[in-house]
Amino acid sequence: MPVPADTGNAPASGTAVHFGAGNIGRGFVGMLLHEGGYEVVFSDVAAGLVDALAGAGSYTVHEVGDGGVDREVSGFRAVNSAQDPEAVAEELAVAAVATTAVGPTVLRFIAPHLVEGLRRRDASAEPLQIMACENAIGATDTLREHMVTAAAEAGADWEELAAKAVFANTAVDRIVPVQPDGAGLDVTVEPFYEWAIERGPFGERPPQLPGAHFVEALGPYIERKLFTVNTGHAAAAYLGARAGLGTVAEALADARVAAGVAAALQETSAVLQAEHGFSEAELADYRATILRRFANPGLPDTVGRVGRQPLRKLSRHERLIGPAAAAAERGLSVDGLLAVVDAALAFRDADDEQAAELARMLAELTSAELVARITGLEAEHPLAPRVQELMARHRG
């Protein structure tokens, strides 16, 4: 029997407009907004999903694994931002919070809705608290930049609009795997989650989000998550795929794959310790927690799903080249990370456009061109020669 989500001791009042009603939106951000006492308004462009939410009284978030419970989410509404942008703007004009979980590349399409909502917002109202909950560094800053552009295109005064909003970067972490057939609106997730939010922009009025924690400096937490959770997940997927294994849990049960993942994460921890001053013991505990999460047999996440979009994951500031480049600049070991890069270059998935594009590029470009086009590394970067060697191995 699902339990109602805990709304905490000081529930918020008002609405929270959340862009992206997919599994992460419903099973993580939307659930926590509900727990904070907000009336959640889901905004999405998928007509079937919006209609299903609009006709449902509730859905259940199933936490699988140690300590997991079923949580019921109710009291929400849904609007179709493609078919009814007017309704989205009206919701934003009076909302307390606006969040996103749409993917970094989609933020530019969200920006015009936020601009129009702020144009309609009363100047005397509390500022709209905007947080982009994306798997990217500085996603809210990116959203704000898109809003500046959208405001100019709409002929709006950006300074006037910006005075009606507060922008805070966040770091989010929760594994939401491929959902079982017939799940409907229900979402299966792991029990663990983390939502770190910049404290400064909110002053004395932070949003009410039980379970989230507010930090003075978000950068270290974002990099710790990206270089441990995302790097580790990718390592398990690419090394697991090369070993012919189907799920991340199966990959980590394989001794050679597990050793490869551990080696890559030892190297990212060395970077995090050097850059941000995390203690060795703290990082060891964090790595152990992450690996336990990945091995959760209740989350049958496939190596294909986790490994998809290899070009993005091999780009300059992403989970593999990013920490490897930082390590090389400091003269630290990169062997484990490059072993994962090697496996990523061999990743193939007939249903993934980027995997097909990667194969095409490896067949057509020189090793130097591949390094520049795929990883964004400068030719003089200390990591570039070793990556070029890997590219040469996979060409043709």
Score class of each variant (00 low, 15 high):
residue 265 L to I: 01
residue 54 A to P: 02
residue 45 V to I: 11
residue 230 N to Q: 11
residue 230 N to W: 10
residue 39 E to R: 15
residue 130 I to K: 06
residue 283 L to E: 05
residue 114 L to Q: 02
residue 191 P to F: 07
residue 185 L to Y: 03
residue 13 S to F: 00
residue 346 A to E: 08
residue 244 G to T: 12
residue 354 Q to E: 14
residue 140 T to I: 04
residue 63 E to V: 07
residue 387 V to D: 13
residue 134 E to M: 03
residue 146 H to G: 06
residue 288 A to N: 11
residue 140 T to W: 11
residue 67 G to I: 13
residue 77 R to K: 09
residue 239 L to H: 04
residue 227 F to Y: 15
residue 377 L to V: 01
residue 195 W to N: 09
residue 98 A to L: 14
residue 53 L to C: 09
residue 332 L to I: 03
residue 190 E to Y: 06
residue 307 G to V: 03
residue 227 F to Q: 01
residue 151 A to G: 05
residue 33 L to D: 08
residue 4 P to G: 05
residue 88 V to Y: 07
residue 126 E to A: 13
residue 56 A to Q: 06
residue 227 F to W: 14
residue 214 F to H: 13
residue 165 A to V: 06
residue 96 A to K: 04
residue 165 A to W: 10
residue 342 D to V: 13
residue 378 E to T: 14
residue 154 A to R: 13
residue 206 P to C: 13
residue 358 L to Y: 12
residue 300 P to S: 12
residue 8 G to H: 05
residue 95 A to R: 03
residue 4 P to R: 13
residue 352 D to K: 01
residue 136 A to Q: 15
residue 30 G to R: 02
residue 320 L to T: 06
residue 218 L to V: 12
residue 269 S to K: 04
residue 346 A to F: 11
residue 32 L to F: 03
residue 334 V to N: 09
residue 203 G to C: 10
residue 20 G to S: 01
residue 88 V to C: 10
residue 253 A to Y: 07
residue 122 D to I: 01
residue 60 T to L: 05
residue 13 S to W: 04
residue 59 Y to L: 03
residue 232 G to V: 09
residue 275 E to Q: 07
residue 234 A to T: 02
residue 173 D to L: 07
residue 148 V to D: 07
residue 284 A to I: 01
residue 32 L to P: 03
residue 194 E to Q: 15
residue 87 A to D: 09
residue 23 N to F: 15
residue 384 A to P: 10
residue 179 Q to H: 12
residue 34 H to P: 01
residue 328 A to L: 09
residue 218 L to N: 06
residue 84 D to I: 12
residue 368 A to Y: 06
residue 148 V to R: 15
residue 256 R to Q: 15
residue 282 E to K: 07
residue 55 G to C: 07
residue 388 Q to D: 10
residue 375 T to E: 15
residue 319 R to V: 14
residue 142 T to L: 06
residue 4 P to C: 03
residue 208 Q to N: 11
residue 46 A to D: 15
residue 57 G to Y: 04
residue 226 L to W: 06
residue 363 A to M: 02
residue 173 D to W: 07
residue 297 P to V: 08
residue 214 F to M: 07
residue 106 V to I: 14
residue 45 V to L: 15
residue 238 Y to E: 05
residue 108 R to N: 13
residue 145 E to C: 02
residue 381 H to D: 13
residue 157 D to L: 02
residue 187 V to A: 01
residue 272 L to P: 03
residue 215 V to C: 08
residue 83 Q to G: 05
residue 344 A to E: 09
residue 284 A to P: 01
residue 217 A to G: 00
residue 153 E to V: 12
residue 258 A to I: 01
residue 94 V to C: 10
residue 219 G to Y: 13
residue 194 E to D: 14
residue 264 A to R: 12
residue 290 I to A: 12
residue 24 I to V: 05
residue 186 D to M: 00
residue 138 G to Y: 04
residue 373 R to P: 02
residue 39 E to I: 00
residue 310 P to T: 07
residue 74 S to P: 04
residue 314 L to I: 03
residue 330 R to V: 04
residue 282 E to S: 05
residue 22 G to I: 15
residue 324 A to C: 02
